[in-house]
């Protein structure tokens, strides 16, 4: 009896500690919401472009890369075709390098297919000021001449500082500028979810 009680107490305290970790965050999308949004975006990409001809997905490091891989899988399931995928590190194109005290860690860009005339769908997790997307577009254009660039994001939280608009949006999320929107993904050892972290 006492062992059972002990085990129960342990489980309860574990649950509490998990809750404690999340006390400062507000859940806005759970695992199911993210999966459904991605499935819809995959369908929208195919509908908008009338299939997979010339289609390529390019994820922006690091969150966008994971989402791009998931979208490629979904498109494969729907159309039976695996579209080319690339990974973009936009660090070298940032407009705030001169303002920062320390340089951000560089990762690699890997776009192993020819971009010429491709319809490139850029993928990112959160669309905020639009500066990342500006950097990503400049970086893409240095790598080749895509026929068209589109943008898919899981969350659009507003507060744009550049005239940039997403083609495909998982969820529109009204936020205040001070709030932090985090997309946590299984690929990074987290349970899939989108949260607003309170300061």
């Amino acid at each position: 009896m006492s062992t059972v009680r002990l085990a129960l107490r342990t489980i309860l305290s574990m649950k509490q500690s998990v809750k404690k970790q999340r006390v400062n965050e507000k859940l806005v999308m759970d695992t199911g919401d993210i999966a459904r949004a991605l499935t819809r975006i995959a369908h929208e990409i195919l509908e908008h472009n009338k299939g997979v001809t010339n289609l390529a997905l390019v994820g922006i490091r690091t969150g966008g890369v994971h989402l791009a891989h998931r979208l490629v899988k979904r498109i494969q399931n729907i159309e039976g075709v695996s579209v080319p995928i690339g990974e973009l590190d936009i660090t070298l194109y940032r407009d705030d390098l001169a303002l920062r005290k320390n340089q951000p860690v560089l990762r690699k860009t890997s776009v192993l297919f020819d971009l010429t005339d491709k319809i490139v769908v850029l993928i990112d997790d959160v669309l905020f000021t639009g500066r990342t997307i500006r950097a990503a577009m400049d970086s893409l254009i240095d790598l080749g001449r895509p026929g068209e660039i589109q943008l898919a994001v899981l969350v659009d939280r507003g507060h744009r500082q550049l005239p940039i608009k997403a083609t495909y949006i998982g969820k529109n999320l009204p936020t205040s500028r001070e709030e932090k929107v985090q997309v946590l993904l299984e690929e990074n050892g987290e349970e899939d979810r989108v949260v607003i972290a309170k300061p």
């Binding site: 590190d89 860690v105 560089l106 690699k108 860009t109 890997s110 240095d142 790598l143 080749g144």
Partner: peptide, 20 residues
């Protein structure tokens, strides 16, 4: 060395220049 690795990719591009 890791940072150099990222730049090795840049030197292999057709346009070997970044605005950094």
């Amino acid at each position: 060395l890791d940072t150099a690795d990222s730049f090795k990719e840049v030197t292999g591009r057709e346009i070997k220049k970044v605005p950094t």
